[in-house]
Design a protein around this nucleic acid. Structure first.
Lengths: 254, 254
DNA sequence: ATAATAGTGTCTATTAGACAATATCCT
DNA sequence: AGGATATTGTCTAATAGACACTATTAT
């Protein structure tokens, strides 16, 4: 990532210009952030959805999300960056601290008729939540009914707006990224075994992995120092696997 | 890509609701699209920039771009999708038909202070232009001065807003994507030789490629049917290379 | 002892990379 | 003929995948 360029100090003539400036005559669309919050619990890939109470799409499942605070309006909310808006919505709708999940901008969706009320452009993010944090999710929840639906069964559910398309885009992204990045560690508890990690891969991609070969791939990360052994054992019906711990965690932005 | 879900027909009660609906009290940010238009000419990676005539950042180089038409305003412009806005801006600022270049959404930038006038969120796209189309670029140009600057020399140029960050993000993306996709064919004329294609890779990534090994990689695509031999030869001081042609071209969206 | 799963080893095929050797074309 | 570059070939190392084998734990 390149460092963000700092805001410039305005010069004399420029300040003069800015004082006279009036916003354009173009109508401005509303801008929202929507979140595809994913987790793997009980060997199932799940996505967090909220039931809409109002039209349009009343009683449909929808992605959690909300307006980006643009600042300078009657709501009294300060302006916020997109990433900040995503983190705020995540915390408001799930109670999860942004620092505890993997959060990344996904894609921006702006089809003209995606919202029948008005022009809404949404910046979609996806979040990966470790299963051990899932029980905390109720807490901060909005009044709205929220539920982890099985991604596998999404075909039989009508999602609001273009949210199905957004979910599909997120799935593509994580399935792809699973193979060359370390996002899998964001879908597993703080400590984990290799078979557990393998299971996450299998569930997300929907294909089985050879245990031996998977282990070898994993070992290369171990040697690279991304992972270290951790104390503890699993309760199991047979030989328990070694427990590991990922060294770094968390992230925001792209 | 998943097919876009069609707009739903609204039901009776929903229509009633929509009729009563009033947009939210939140201030709406302006939304723009900005384009990172790249090409390779004379063995140099270049980006198309326009010189700003007005404050802020007067006389600075900036990415071509403009407002997304949201519809329903006094400008009389119809609402348009994001991709459509990108294509329109491309055509307005360069004269290039969207169907003739590779165009893909890059990332959305929304730092609060990225524009000192007001809150502006920009959806950035990048475009790859074949060198044989570059001479056509003047044509549709705006009044603004436009120029292909060398990416290599961008450090000595102060770009407007956060446009440097956007360019850097685009460069990262294409350097990465060059290795596993076929975007290189969008930076080369309709017919090309393997050494020409190799040169594009070398210029974009900044590293030399072994001719023999590169050829082998290329041959796999040939066998996959992505490429076919084409008639014609190059004028050269030594043995001329075989000329090929890419089978498909163009694209819009992500 | 046995079942079950963790963990190791082996073999093959594919691919990237370094580098040498040959072929073909221009002047 | 000579120079230059295209094109082919060879060798090595790294990696993925299929699959057999051994080790360790719970019951």
């Amino acid at each position: 990532m390149s460092p963000r360029s700092k805001a410039r100090a305005a010069s004399g003539r420029e300040l003069e210009f800015l004082a006279r400036y009036r916003p354009s005559e173009y109508a401005r669309p509303s801008v929202t952030v929507d979140l595809v919050v994913l987790t793997v619990v009980d060997a199932e890939l799940r996505v967090l959805l909220v039931k809409r109470r109002e039209h349009p799409f009343q009683d449909h499942w929808a992605l959690p999300g909300g307006f980006v605070h643009a600042g300078g309006d009657s709501s009294g909310e300060a302006a916020e960056d997109l990433d900040a808006a995503a983190v705020r919505e995540l915390e408001e709708e799930t109670g999860l601290k942004g620092s505890r999940v993997y959060l990344e901008q996904l894609h921006t969706f702006g089809r003209v008729d995606r919202d029948p009320r008005m022009r809404v452009i949404t910046v979609a993010y996806y979040a990966l939540v470790r299963p051990d944090l899932v029980p905390l999710v109720q807490a901060g929840g909005d009044a709205a009914e929220a539920e982890w639906l099985l991604v596998r069964e999404l075909d039989s559910v009508a999602l609001a707006f273009d949210h199905r398309e957004i979910v599909d885009t997120a799935l593509q992204r994580i399935r792809n990224k699973l193979e060359y990045s370390d996002i899998a560690f964001s879908l597993v508890p703080a400590t984990f075994t290799i078979p557990e990690l393998r299971l996450v891969h299998e569930i997300v991609t929907g294909t089985p992995y050879d245990p031996g070969n998977f282990r070898r791939r994993f070992n290369r990360m171990l040697e690279a120092g991304l992972i270290e052994k951790a104390p503890g054992k699993r309760l199991t019906a047979s030989k328990p696997a070694t427990v590991y711990r990922f060294v770094r965690r968390e992230r925001v932005g792209a």
